[in-house]
Design a protein around this nucleic acid. Structure first.
Lengths: 184, 184
DNA sequence: ACGTTAATTGAACGTGTGGTCAAGAAGTGC
DNA sequence: GCACTTCTTGACCACACGTTCAATTAACGT
C-alpha cells in the first residue's frame, strides 16, 4: 500500500446517489458529478469505473440508505400494519411540492429511464422493487388488505409519479386515505 | 403559397411521438428523430421548432392518439364501470414483457424525466394526468369503488413503472385482479 | 413559360459529452 | 532519507450533440 485515498468513500457514494437521483442518468454530466463528489474524472474512473458503474453504485447506495430503512419500518412489529402503510404513504405527502421530494424515487426513475436499456440496471431495480413488494406483502398478511399487496405496491410508485408530475400534498393526502381505507 | 410540404404532418407527429416515447427526451437524438420522421434537421426546425417543441408535439399527439381513446372507453356507458377499469388494467398485462409495451406510458415517462425541468412539459403532463384522474373518478361514481378513484389512478401508473421495470404478465394479472376486487 | 415563394437539403458551427493519459503529489515501508 | 507504489490532477481526445444557414429544389400564381 502506498498513498491512501483522500476521500470518504461513503460520502462520495451518497453524493453520487444524489446527483443521479436529481438529474437522472443522462441528465447528470461529469461536470455535475465532479462538483457533487469533489473528485475529478480521473479519480472517479480509477476508483469506480465508467459512468454506468457510477450509476450502479448510486442505485446500491439508494437501496441501503433509503430502501432498507423503509423495508425495516414495514417489518416493525411495534407498529400496526395500517400504521406502517400509513408511514409509507405519508412519505409521498411530505415529498409533494418540495425540492428534494420532486427528485422522486431513484428506483422509479431508474426503472423508467434506464431499465429498458441497461440489463444490469434492470436487474438491480427489479430486485429492489421486489424487495419492497415482499415487505408490503408480509406487512399486510392477516389483515383485511391481505390480498391487496400488489395494489398498495403500485399505488406507492404511482404516487411517486404524481409527485414528480407536481401534484399537491392535498392530492397525496387523498391518495393516502384511499390506500388506508383498504384496511377498513 | 408556393412549394407545399412534402410530408404528412400527422405521420411525422406520430413518428415524433414514438421516438420520444421509446427513448425519452434526452435519449432521443436528432439522428433518431431524422430516421423516424424521414425529415432532416432543417425541415424539423422550420416546421416545428427546436427539440423541446418537438417533444411538446409528441406529448400532444400522445394525448390525442392514446389518452383520449382511453378516456372515451372509461366513459363508455355500454360497459359496466368494472369492465372499463378491467380494460384499463388489461393494457398493462398486455404491455408487460413486450417490446413496445416497455416503452411504458409517454406521460409517465415525461413526468419523470422532464416535468421537474421544463415548466411547459410539467403543465401538459399534469393536465393529461388530471384528465385521466377525472375520467376514472366519473367511471367509479356510484359503485363500491367510488371513494377509490385516486387509488386506481396511481395503481395504473405504478403498474406502468413495473412494466418498464420488466415485471411479468403474471404480476400484472395479479395486480389487475386486486384492482378489480375493489368493486367486490 | 416564368418569376416568386416556400420547402428541403446537407454541410458547417460551437459546445459539451464521456473517456484517457502522462506528469506530479503524497503517503508507505525499508 | 530514499525508493516504491498509489492516488490525484488537469489537460487532452474524439465524437455526438443541438442548432444554423446558404444553396438548391419544386410547386404555385399569373
Amino acid at each position: 500500500m502506498a498513498r491512501p485515498r483522500q476521500f470518504d468513500e461513503a460520502a462520495v457514494k451518497s453524493a453520487l446517489r444524489d446527483v443521479f437521483w436529481e438529474h437522472g442518468y443522462e441528465g447528470a454530466s461529469y461536470a455535475n458529478i465532479m462538483t457533487a463528489t469533489g473528485l475529478n474524472k480521473g479519480s472517479l474512473y480509477a476508483s469506480f469505473g465508467d459512468k454506468r458503474a457510477l450509476y450502479q453504485h448510486a442505485i446500491s447506495d439508494y437501496a441501503l440508505s433509503h430502501l432498507a430503512p423503509g423495508v425495516a419500518m414495514l417489518r416493525d412489529k411495534s407498529l400496526t400494519p395500517q400504521d406502517r402503510i400509513n408511514n409509507l404513504m405519508t412519505t409521498l405527502v411530505q415529498a409533494a411540492r418540495t425540492q428534494q421530494g420532486r427528485w422522486g424515487c431513484l428506483l422509479c426513475n431508474a426503472a423508467i429511464d434506464q431499465s429498458p436499456f441497461d440489463a444490469d440496471v434492470e436487474k438491480s431495480v427489479a430486485e429492489a422493487l421486489s424487495t419492497l413488494r415482499k415487505a408490503i406483502k408480509l406487512c399486510v398478511k392477516d389483515t383485511t388488505a391481505e390480498d391487496k399487496a400488489e395494489l398498495i405496491w403500485t399505488a406507492y410508485f404511482g404516487g411517486h409519479v404524481m409527485v414528480k408530475a407536481g401534484f399537491s400534498k392535498a392530492v397525496m393526502r387523498t391518495h393516502r386515505a384511499q390506500v388506508l381505507s383498504l384496511f377498513a
